[in-house]
Amino acid sequence: MKIAVCIKRVPDSETRVKIAADGKSLDEAGVKFILNPYDEFAVEEGLRLKEKAGTGEVVVIALGPPAAQETIRTALAMGVDRGVLLQTPGLHPDGLETAKALAGELKDAAFDLVLFGKMAIDDYNHQVGPMVAELLDLPCVTTVAHLEIAGGKGTAEREIEGGVEVVEFPLPAVLTTDKGLNEPRYPALKGIMAAKKKPLDIKPTAPGPGALEILSLTLPPERQAGKIVGEGSAAVTELVRLLREEAKVL
């Protein structure tokens, strides 16, 4: 099994967002960056599929700044064989440009599977995986929460509103992974040491500017702290009255 996993370096989910002086981007001062949590499921699944097949290779590919090398090393420490950094000074908001850059790297490599997290927890774009699939003309299933692969075919389950879709597809394919697919492993010390010696190719890349222009990044309006209606079950009648008469939601 030859598997590619596309990963992204993102701010930790506990980050308090501050807006940079340009009014259009995140102030990265003091921000801790991590491997996108949804990509961890993709890395883990790639490793498990390779282990099950008993042979093959898992490669991670990241599009990002030089610091994304650390993110790649995290995946290498989990057990991935090698990494590729498509190094770019900054990422554009247009996911199609990201998809084009990744598709360019993937197109001639004959992977059996290309895995993505279902979305990145920074830009919430939720689109690069299926776009890459379209650009490479590969079958694609998104937000996979259960997966079985056998005999060149796969069956995936994906959550939809009020149910679960059961989806069949042939390999090679592009899949995006959802929480619940697996429990990602933590890198062991041995893995962390080994990761330092694993190959990491750095390829300067310049995605196109795309057709989306950022006008502003702003903090959402602060919610006015409301009122404490009261204490204990005695306050419930008043709460219901307020919800009906003041908030008008009941």
Binding site: R158, G210, L212
Partner: peptide, 22 residues
């Protein structure tokens, strides 16, 4: 929706157009 977020990127890529989700 679950379907829209799956379908819209496919259509956008086929059109060569950017997609603004959510």
């Amino acid at each position: 929706s679950a379907t829209g977020k799956d379908l819209a990127p496919r259509v956008a890529a086929r059109l060569g157009r950017p997609l603004v989700q959510d």
